[in-house]
Write a protein that binds this DNA or RNA. Sequence first.
DNA 1: AATGATTAAGCAAGCAATTGCTTGTTGGAT
DNA 2: ATCCAACAAGCAATTGCTTGCTTAATCATT
Lengths: 195, 195
Amino acid sequence: MPTGHKRQGSALEANRRDELLRAAARLFVEKGFDATTTRDIAEAVGMRSGSPFYHFRSKQDLLKAAMIEGLEAGHQRLQAAVAGIDDPERRLRVMIRSHLGTLLEGDCHAPMLVYESRSLGITARAEIAAVSDRYQQAWQATLEQLAASGKLRLPAKPMRLLLFGMLNWSRQWYRSNGGLSLDEIAEAAAEMVLA
Amino acid sequence: MPTGHKRQGSALEANRRDELLRAAARLFVEKGFDATTTRDIAEAVGMRSGSPFYHFRSKQDLLKAAMIEGLEAGHQRLQAAVAGIDDPERRLRVMIRSHLGTLLEGDCHAPMLVYESRSLGITARAEIAAVSDRYQQAWQATLEQLAASGKLRLPAKPMRLLLFGMLNWSRQWYRSNGGLSLDEIAEAAAEMVLA
DNA sequence: AATGATTAAGCAAGCAATTGCTTGTTGGAT
DNA sequence: ATCCAACAAGCAATTGCTTGCTTAATCATT
């Protein structure tokens, strides 16, 4: 493959860096940012205690990178899910289901890292807020479309805030093996939003 | 005052202990449990770094006590608010407003400490869960009453979970000086719950 | 192709600061 | 005289992070 874009060294580098990112995200969500030591993260990927600092300048940098990566993965998943769906009601239902998926499925749970924002400096917090805002705007647009045709029980903005509360808070009580399924939660939430 | 139940020494003790509890609760909510040092707490009430340990055996004990105190204060506020209200719809509205009050008004914000449960040992977590359950049951009862007369948009249990999500998550975006007021949030939430 | 220079990636060791908590002591109210 | 409440001082462990070095892979030049 003479036109390969990556030398082997670079590929390995990216892999290890991603491993660190994923392990850190998992541990941060599991135990919280402060309760997770850089030694925990290193051990999780089989490195020595100081080695992660070759890939990331600081522990906070690691958190910031994990948050941005997780937010953008969720954003792309959302965009892919709604692609080609024109009916706004149907689109909202798909968005709700997609959001619950990134929030509760798999082992990453990256969106919940946003809750650890306070561990970051103000400049990093602003970066996160910018990425997060783009995600919110996709929702705002769809909700306003629904509100315009009288299909929402509340104005778009308060509705968005309350809806995100319902969805995000589900991380506090959702258990994958019992109780409501993701589809059921999604349908229940949609039921409350739509008039 | 021969029948006084408290000597002055005890009264002062209780005062200082309560000061510690309130300061700790505020700091824990503000910065998180791990990011708050026992020195922060001591300084907040004008003590030296080791003195809080005269009143509390450990930092975790301080958190546990603050959580229980906050939860029970909220519970009493709720009970007082609904006393004598028989109409279940009216009672739910009052409960929602009361819950938002304990959550967002004043400077204590104790209910949000529940989110710091993971910093506790399992036995302490169980104690907290027990107190928290009593609070939830008051809601469950009222919601079931409403569901029985067909006034709920969803069955009582999922409705309770989603409702608490809407309300508790409001701490993430509510600002006392702009946007929606507590009364407006309460009304919007009630609107979504009731059929 | 062979050789020397450079770099990527990580290890070993440890530093400086912080942390929760303990110990022995002291002033003041009863 | 007694004892509550707090102080002064510091210990032991942990923490994020740094430094100097090693190993292997890559690159440039002959």
